[in-house]
Design a protein around this nucleic acid. Structure first.
Length: 271
DNA sequence: CAAAGAACCTGGCGGC
DNA sequence: TGCCGCCAGGTTCTTT
């Protein structure tokens, strides 16, 4: 799934190509674009220059100098492809931004999560304003994590998945994070001792960084701007490994459901 | 208000 | 071949 590392990758790849570039045309193919107001979107985007690309949790926000911002959430299957580096024709283009010398495709996005809003209103958008801390941000340390966990009576996996606490972790990374931290996904968040909190913090940061370095997880639809795949999924330690031996102790990995989400863990290593 | 569960949405897959 | 139900995990709503 596209989670923090995947969106961070797209942000970094996108910046050199689109920053300072003028949008010549917004193209919405026949029958595509969901219920986005094409006329208003054209007015806001065509002729405007892209002034910023930032990531908020699992969302990408493109700012343009006409005073609007485009919020993109890829959900499970969305893709962003750039014509100048992508060799081929995307098969489901929902929306395309045409630049002087390039074209940016938004494909297979869940359009409910594609929004164009005045930049001044961005901070009032609940999807953004209710987001929690960025786990790769400088201010995120073990002490802060400990404070966040202290009052939580829910399961630690549910805490990691809740975007209001830490923004950007999804079902794939949460399982890998908890395995590395040797903490059971069903542990009550506030029950973690100081050492476990330190391990969890280190694991959150290292696991997300590792995902980044491996080009993200292309287990499902995620690809880079040029269509290439990441390889993090080849190094999953628990995700999708039900019944296979734990890479640390050999015990078969188990699959259960936590918070309604498929959850893989080692019953021996994780307590 | 926090937590849990169900619901909704998308695409993919297996069974019939 | 299509249809259907189910699963997946992203969010959001509803209930407790």
């Amino acid at each position: 799934m596209p989670e923090l590392p995947e969106l961070e990758i797209l942000k970094r790849e996108l910046r050199p190509y689109v920053l300072g570039r003028q949008v010549k045309e917004l193209v919405v193919p026949e029958g595509k674009g969901g219920d986005c107001a094409v006329g208003e979107w054209k007015e806001a985007l065509e002729g405007a220059t892209i002034t910023g690309v930032e990531r908020r949790g699992k969302m990408l926000v493109l700012h343009v100098d006409s005073g609007f911002s485009l919020i993109v959430h890829l959900m499970m299957v969305g893709q962003l492809l750039l014509r100048s580096v992508y060799n081929g024709v995307p098969n489901d283009v929902q929306l395309m931004l045409v630049f002087e010398d390039d074209q940016l495709f938004l494909g297979q996005v869940h359009l409910k999560f594609l929004r164009l809003v005045p930049t001044a209103d961005l901070d009032q958008m609940p999807q953004l304003s209710e987001l929690g801390r960025d786990p790769l941000g400088e201010a995120f340390g073990p002490e802060i994590l400990g404070e966040m966990l202290a009052q939580r009576r829910g399961k630690i996996k549910s805490f990691l998945l809740d975007q209001r606490h830490l923004a950007g972790i999804g079902n794939t990374y949460s399982d890998e994070i908890l395995f590395e931290a040797r903490i059971s996904p069903t542990r009550v968040a506030s029950s973690l001792n100081a050492d476990e909190v330190r391990r969890l913090h280190g694991s959150v940061v290292r696991t997300l960084q590792r995902g980044l370095e491996l080009g993200g997880s292309s287990e499902m639809a995620f690809v880079h701007l040029d269509g290439s795949k990441g390889i993090f999924q080849e190094q999953f330690r628990v995700k999708g490994r039900k019944g296979k031996p734990c890479l640390v102790c050999g015990t078969p990995i188990e699959k259960t459901s936590v918070g309604g989400r498929g959850t893989y863990f080692c019953p021996s290593c994780q307590e």
